[in-house]
Nucleic acid binder design. Structure first.
Lengths: 339, 339
DNA sequence: CGGATCATTCAAAGCGATTTCAAATTTCGA
DNA sequence: TCGAAATTTGAAATCGCTTTGAATGATCCG
């Protein structure tokens, strides 16, 4: 069922039918109704490729992911959020996976040259992220999920990682903890650096010296977290509190604490960052987990919204959002044990 | 940079340039080289929309997901697997999320009518899954990840859920367990029904009566699993072993066992199904987790491969793969405690 | 009544590729 | 040397839609 068929069926020209369906004003209301009704009845849908070619818009927004590393639980939540918003606009999400960084750059070039997407989302940037400049050079509109220090205006949405960790650290200090371990993300990623800044700021505000042995940088998997926490718990004096970068990390720390036969919430405290996974609830852990919370799914939804605004003409200078992070105290964080 | 520009730049016709780039035989080797070199130097890429319109192929394969429910850790692993295979073919993955089942049907129709994809992947089917018939009616090639009992030939790839659970159950019976709980997936999904069959078969082979109180059907989240396991552990006599449907489920059972102050691997045993998440390793749990293992990422890669074969003309009757599942014994499963 | 205005409709020209069919040039064998 | 065959190139049609610019009738007003 092509436009041409539909037009013939109606005894009208393609022009009129196209206009009727796309809501142009210069078509008789009676005709418009007749067209709409017939199109619906016959299940007509414009061919996506033809439409894209004619309009120049591709009707898709792109996402390039380093497969193994990035397509984890965080990303799928983010995707779900984006998808929810885009679905109502009938805009597709185009997921491209790559293996290496070099492939990633090539992928951006390819996607740009073939005009497959109208805009892109850029993820977990580094402090200085060349991908940002690349996309600017390529002229593709994009929203950065996170921030970067490149001398260009970009549209971004980020959560207040610095503030979150600063508050968590301060709170633990208030509870008397002095040996607070930070399980942070990969060195070089902006969010990890921001968290480190918050951590150091809180420590220095109380004059508590920073001990590099109490800071780990790694991916957020329970396994790595387990190993890091395990070795930190062997230090003397050992840490009395952990700040875990994600819920996966928290699970690893959990295990390390248990294996060391310590009690979470008493001998050792923990505050974890919670991206709000529907299948891993901080409230229902045992003991329940104190968290710094920010829904990554909501972030996805909002990023989608921002992209739509940009495509509608909004100036990217006006697209900056820094989301506060709530500190939710539960059972896993308590007063530091007596010396 | 359009084909036309490139052709003018070369002093050739679009026809020749197009042929040269697409490897048609009737173009002079010297010319071909010159075209290829110039195209590469100028970074020419055919416009995706135009190419699709001209060829009739969309260069994408589709995936419709019910956002909240389906876009979890399993799916992101599967996606990563698919993406890896498709990337080398320059085929895109089009992710559409929907809220309700009704929306899902509409989404399939829409995608079909607008010819956005060349093929689709269908996921976690029900015993009788109408989506399968819908896709057949719509004439879209697809591969089913799982199986369904609809009277039609479809291409599918599935793991041997029945065999996996049967072996796990038999093994626990061998160890002397008689009260074995099964934390299964949502009722009606084929994989859950298959697992139930394996469970029941193993029980009845030993003449162990089936106790409905020891079977739970729910989504695979740690929270739900925790609640189910918790209430099961309150039964008397209580279950001495658990078969957990996923690693998330296992985490919940873990917690329930600990909260009940029992020891995993001694008073209570557990075998969990492991889809092989890179961030949640059965080997590194404490105690390490016995599992029935099958990489869902590999399944994704393979499904992608099968789709490519189908698009290349392979008969769907020849596309059926049932993957065996390995049983990996570790510390979480041990002999039943003495009465 | 007649010219201007308005409301509708349509034919045809893109969009940027592929592909059919024809033309031009070379090569080859008799 | 000449015609046929093979090789190489190109003009134009096509894919299915949007959109420009023109045409057709209907309506209005002096």
């Amino acid at each position: 069922m092509r436009l041409k068929d539909l037009a013939e069926h109606l005894g009208l020209s393609q022009t009129t039918v196209s206009r009727a369906l796309n809501g142009y004003p210069e078509v008789n209301e009676v005709t418009r109704l007749r067209v709409a009704e017939t199109a619906a009845r016959l299940g007509y849908r414009p061919n996506a490729s033809a439409l894209r070619l004619a309009t120049g818009r591709s009707g898709a927004i792109g996402l390039v992911l380093r497969g193994a590393e990035e397509l984890g639980p965080h990303m799928s939540e983010f995707l779900a959020g984006m998808g929810g918003r885009m679905a109502t606009e009938e805009i597709d999400i185009l997921v491209t996976t790559v293996d290496s960084y070099a492939d990633e750059v090539a992928a951006y070039r390819r996607i740009a040259a073939s005009q497959k997407v109208d805009a892109m989302v850029l993820h977990s940037p580094k402090i200085v992220d060349e991908r940002v400049r690349l996309l600017k050079d390529l002229g593709i509109p994009f929203v950065l999920h996170g921030r970067t220090n490149i001398g260009e205006t970009v549209a971004w949405l980020d959560i207040d990682n610095t503030g979150a960790v600063e508050r968590a650290t301060s709170h633990l200090l208030d509870l008397g903890h002095r040996r607070i371990a930070l399980l942070n993300g990969i060195k070089g990623r902006t969010f990890a650096e921001h968290r480190e800044i918050g951590y150091l700021a809180a420590l220095s505000a109380r004059g508590v010296p920073f001990d590099p042995a109490l800071m780990g940088n790694a991916v957020f998997t329970d396994e790595v977290a387990f190993r890091l926490a395990q070795s930190m718990l062997e230090l003397r004096p050992r840490p009395t509190a952990f700040i875990a970068g994600s819920m996966m990390t928290a699970l690893g720390v959990f295990r390390a604490i248990r294996q060391a036969e310590l009690t979470l919430g008493k001998e050792v405290s923990m505050i974890a960052h919670d991206d709000v996974f529907p299948y891993l609830n901080a409230d229902n852990m045992f003991p329940s987990m104190s968290t710094t919370r920010s829904s990554i799914r909501q972030a996805g939804t909002r990023v989608a919204e921002l992209i739509l605004q940009i495509l509608a003409g909004k100036n990217i200078e006006d697209v900056h959002e820094l989301w506060p992070v709530e500190l939710v105290l539960r059972e896993s964080s308590g007063p530091a044990p007596a010396q």
